[in-house]
């Protein structure tokens, strides 16, 4: 199973009278299950945009993304929803990842309800998830503001794992975290990948992280992607 990104181009602000600004052109690479593709590049080159397009949240100006050999932009209805679940996004800022007015348990239960897990199974599911990400059940009764960045980023990952995704787009997953917590989260990500054979698109400006995590790497610069190995 793979996610093929073919000749993606993106322009912003293109209209009837303006050319628009080109973000990147003819970007192609492939995400394999259980492997990590590391995407590097200076800030402002459109790494995050590329990530959002890969997850199907934004449309490219040109080019296509293929999941199981079908274009994701042609999907509709139930197929589209199924795809949306299979490719998930994780963002940079953990303090912003949870609704500040909901306790963690409510955020989690809403997801379980969404994926139609019957009510009696929900506590078990939650417990298994918390065990996976290495947190105790106490966090459930907290508000996001009462948890540390590391704990929230783990929970953000756990929340995504409930949906059993095949691919996760990690958009700077550790750049808002402390150095020591960053190491924890990176290891957790590796563990999760081994266990469920999830494919990662890891976006980061830190070469050390990319080198540590990735099976193949690409550098996005001046609107072009250079696949390094």
């Amino acid at each position: 199973m793979s996610l093929k990104i073919k000749n993606l181009s993106k322009k912003y602000g293109a209209g009837l009278f303006s050319e628009g600004t080109e973000i990147f052109r003819e970007v192609s690479f492939t995400l394999e299950a259980g492997k990590t593709f590391g995407l590097m590049g200076p800030s402002g080159v459109g790494k995050s945009t590329l990530g959002r397009i890969t997850a199907g949240l934004e449309k490219p100006t040109d080019g296509d993304v293929f999941y199981k050999e079908t274009s994701i932009f042609g999907l509709a209805g139930a197929e589209r929803t199924a795809f949306r679940r299979k490719v998930q996004l994780m963002f940079q800022d953990p303090t912003d990842a949870f609704n500040p007015r909901k306790k963690i348990d409510r955020s989690i239960f809403e997801i379980l309800k969404l994926i139609k897990i019957p009510e009696p199974e929900r506590p078990d599911k939650t417990r298994t998830m918390l065990e996976t990400i290495g947190l105790s059940e106490e966090v459930l009764s907290r508000f996001p503001a009462q948890l540390s960045g590391g704990q929230l980023q783990r929970l953000a990952l756990g929340r995504i794992l409930l949906l059993e995704p095949a691919f996760i787009v990690l958009d700077e997953p550790t750049s808002a975290l402390d150095v020591s917590v960053q190491a924890q989260v990176l290891h957790l990500l590796k563990q999760v990948q081994e266990k469920w054979r999830i494919g990662y698109l890891l976006i980061s400006h830190d070469e050390a992280i990319i080198n540590f995590m990735s099976d193949s790497r690409g550098l996005l610069e001046n609107g072009k992607l250079r696949v390094l190995d």
């Binding site: 929803t81 949306r84 679940r85 963002f91 800022d93 969404l114």
Partner: peptide, 20 residues
Amino acid sequence: GYVKSARGMGFSPFHIMSTD
């Protein structure tokens, strides 16, 4: 972030508007 991820997870607009 929480609205973006809720959309990514496939929550309905109504759900996002009313609870988030």
